[in-house]
């Protein structure tokens, strides 16, 4: 019990003294996950719009498949990315393995189905009269789509936040393709995993608290957005 208590005290000391290692790991985690989110958003909003605004054969099957991929195991994505970017893989010539870029690629693949599915749901949630009114007021297809996206902005923001939450908390993928390299690809979840095994409990707890704080901020933001949407 005292080990946990001591760990907690030391963890808070590390956080409040802005310990360089803790801050460096937290900062890296944040920017890698933020970059993954930005890239995934840039892909998912247009792609989600194309899927939502067009009727084509197999649309509902496609949406179901996207939703199924929400629960894709991180290690499976890690393995897939590893096979592609490892030296003998088709993208081996770029030397991406064990780099932040590799983690970003993996996280984009991991969170895209979630964000894409949520973007489609968000667009579907917009009253059909919005589209109809826009068309009636002379909007072209693109202008109508932009208006509907704007109307769904709070729900789309929720998708983005959910994606960020999944990206920053995953561990298997970052370990497999990032390698958990000190001051290069070490993120909060991989650091917690390693430091706990090493018995460096206070650092693990400090990072754990930061991760929980991030999760809390994400939840508060989500809650506020949902209230605004309502």
């Amino acid at each position: 019990m005292s080990e946990i208590w001591d760990g907690l005290v030391q963890a808070f000391q590390l956080i409040f003294t802005f310990d360089s290692e803790v801050m460096s790991i937290a900062g890296r985690s944040l920017w890698i996950s933020a970059a993954s989110c930005v890239i995934a958003t840039a892909m998912c909003i247009p792609l989600g719009s194309v899927i939502h605004f067009n009727n084509f054969r197999g649309k509902s099957f496609l949406v179901s498949t996207i939703q199924t991929l929400w629960s894709m195991p991180t290690v499976a994505v890690g393995l897939l990315v590893f096979l592609f970017i490892s030296r003998s893989g088709p993208l081996g010539m770029f030397g991406l393995l064990f780099s932040p870029t590799a983690i970003i690629i993996g996280q984009v693949i991991l969170i895209s189905p979630l964000m894409l599915g949520m973007v489609i749901s968000a667009l579907k949630g917009v009253d059909k009269l919005v589209s109809e009114t826009a068309v009636s007021l002379g909007a072209s297809r693109v202008q109508k789509a932009i208006l509907v996206i704007k109307e769904a902005r709070y729900a789309i923001m929720s998708a983005l936040i959910m994606g960020f939450g999944r990206a920053i908390s995953e561990v298997g993928l970052s370990l497999m393709v990032g390698g958990n390299i000190y001051q290069y690809t070490r993120t909060i979840p991989t650091a917690i995993s390693l430091e706990t095994q090493k018995g460096n409990i206070e650092l693990s707890i400090a990072l754990g608290i930061i991760l929980i704080l991030i999760a809390l901020i994400i939840n508060i933001a989500l809650h506020m957005l949902q209230r605004k949407k309502a």
Binding site: L129, T133, S136, L137, G138, Q143, L147
Partner: peptide, 25 residues
Amino acid sequence: SLVQQKPIVFNMNVYDNVAVGLRWR
């Protein structure tokens, strides 16, 4: 232009709601 039986307004201010059709043109 059509005024519907139960019209909806877009999630923006009144001025932008009125101006949107002109912007699209």
